[in-house]
Design a binder for these strands. Structure first.
Lengths: 341, 341
DNA sequence: CAGTTTTTGATTTACGTACATCAAATTTGG
DNA sequence: CCAAATTTGATGTACGTAAATCAAAAACTG
């Protein structure tokens, strides 16, 4: 049988009440006594029964998720995952609320963040637009003792407690290597479609991509980035336009969302050409395009994992517990047509 | 506040005792009453507080893991993960024991399985050697009501409750496409190193690999499979031998373990040649080889995920609960040198 | 050393469920 | 319609922890 608080009390020669004071860092314990108890805990190998503890506490965690109001499959998927987390709320003792803000709009984000400063939820997760104002607002929250994690896209230089998302530089580098290797010794230009350079994840993907292309695939050159604001319509127009111009585009890297538009443009303007295409985020659209050969590889971040990780981290931070970084690492999925889930 | 058993009692107009009888399917409840209670449960949306239930039950799950005694990094890693699970045992109410059996030895496996039939643990996880005798032994256990999951490698035609491992046909297909695309239009032979055709995972990987090569990369031909029994020494000798012969090997697919030997052979015998190499399982050795360019891509199954999934499934089965298949799906990781964890 | 403050002990209640017991009510069979 | 069987209710204890109260003991203060 695993040891309980009673065993600690017996081992340390103190009362249950004192053990409780030490365990829950309540005041009124002499330093020597505290050490005696802590030693006993270590010696008998006590670990708190979290289930029993939560039951006794009956505590719930009011959490807030701030998501951009973007009309693309990835954000819809993210929304779905948050809703799924809301459905699990009773079991996880969370009480999750989501707030939608306009995409790529630092001001709106700051307004929401400042309001939350008053409300004092147990934790906040946000898809960050990477701007100094946002950083400052987040830092104010952190200073106020409210746990904050960035989701999907990080916030440069801020004090946020954690980032729940993939390593986007690595993602960009991986995309570059795949594209480079798939293209072999071919010479030509690569079109890059991004959402906006205002979000750090897109900037980082581009950075990693450009670095590897430059260093290891000198026969490829990268065209000026197309910013489609993660909007399918806009992406369609811009990509169709780029493909219509004469030039020797032989590859495309779509590092943001709005791939519906990209795929439409590819199907209309590049049927005759054999483009190698790498895109981000597995959605119904990109999955179909991968299967029919329009896209060659998809890099994906699992939104469900990100949301669940964010919740775990926020709860841990709210309780002042340590986070097992290795466990919270979000993996970059690579999908070819053969290993689709 | 989420509803409790008291709320059910009130809603159904019965006593707590009756609610308990219904919830825990105890006898002595009239059919009409049972329905009344079940309706109330549905209407107020009651979900059992698992933490409280476990606390009250104080139940533990004696589980057994049967692992092959193979001296390769993957099996060592798997062992480590099981040990890590043992360390978590108190928190998860599991009581895990591991049994080592000789690798690729159906008879030894059957002996162990039959012994466990007497012992009646709450669940068994095994790395299956794919043989009819083993299948029959597993089916006997299943018939006796003992939950069984196969780990890493599945068991053809058996009644095992679940398979905790990657889709190995998909893995083989993915390897083929990567290799094919990396090689571009090059013509030549592909060497395949396996552990043994006695285990289903290796057979399936080969099957998927061969299918895609044949269908989509006709310029590549597959040499007869080299069976290295997942042993580094044996793998070294066989691969070194294959590379020494004249021929036009331009690619290698290592679908089993023992990659230490493969890497040594590649470094000694293929420095001058530019081989494209795809291997399975991320270990210290394959990681180093990926970084130094000896290996071009690594396909990986996360042993930790597999072990944790197996435990979740065994517990669920022991309690007669349903398993969320989507949650237990083991992903195939693809690592290039850029996205290593 | 009296008085004050701090530390410690003893005890109780609560969380939501499981499980057991015994009495009371209801249904069933003859 | 009575006895037997079945169904239901009432109640208590347990799981391991949290949190609170109040009294007792110990440690300081001047």
């Amino acid at each position: 049988m695993r040891p309980t608080v009673h065993d600690i009390a017996a081992a340390a020669g103190v009362s249950l009440a004192t053990v409780d004071r030490v365990l829950n860092q309540r005041p009124g314990v002499r330093h020597v006594t505290r050490e005696k108890v802590e030693n006993a805990i270590r010696e008998i190998g006590y670990v708190r029964d979290v289930a029993a503890a939560n039951l006794a506490k009956g505590r719930t965690y009011p959490l807030v998720f701030i998501l951009p109001a973007s009309d693309n499959s990835f954000m819809h998927g993210l929304n779905d995952e948050v809703r799924a987390a809301v459905a699990r709320s009773p079991a996880e003792r969370t009480d999750i609320r989501t707030i939608e803000v306009p995409a790529f709009d630092p001001t709106a984000l700051v307004t929401v963040l400042d309001e939350l400063c008053e409300e004092r939820p147990a934790g906040i997760a946000l898809v960050a637009t990477d701007a100094p104002d946002v950083r400052d607002a987040v830092d104010r929250l952190v200073k106020d003792g409210i746990p904050v994690v960035t989701l999907v896209s990080d916030l440069t230089g801020s004090q946020r407690h954690h980032y729940a998302g993939v390593d986007n530089i690595a993602a960009g580098r991986t995309a570059a290597r795949l594209l480079g290797r798939f293209l072999g010794s071919a010479k030509g230009e690569i079109a890059v479609l991004a959402g906006s350079m205002l979000v750090r994840d897109h900037r980082e993907r581009l950075e990693g991509f450009a670095a590897v292309i430059a260093a290891e695939f000198p026969s490829l050159s990268i065209l000026p980035v197309i910013e489609g604001r993660d909007d399918p319509e806009m992406a369609y127009m811009l990509v169709a336009d780029a493909l219509s111009k004469k030039g020797d585009i032989i590859g495309v890297y779509s590092l943001g969302a709005g791939n519906r538009g990209l795929i439409r443009a590819l199907k209309e303007k590049a049927v005759d050409r054999s483009l190698t295409v790498i895109a981000h985020e597995l959605t119904a659209h990109t999955r179909a395009a991968l299967l029919d050969g329009t896209i060659d590889a998809i890099l994906n971040q699992n939104a469900g994992h990100e949301v669940r990780s964010a919740i775990r981290v926020l709860k841990a931070k709210a309780d002042g517990l340590a986070v097992i970084e290795a466990q919270e690492r979000i993996r970059l999925d690579i999908f070819l047509k053969d290993n689709l889930p």
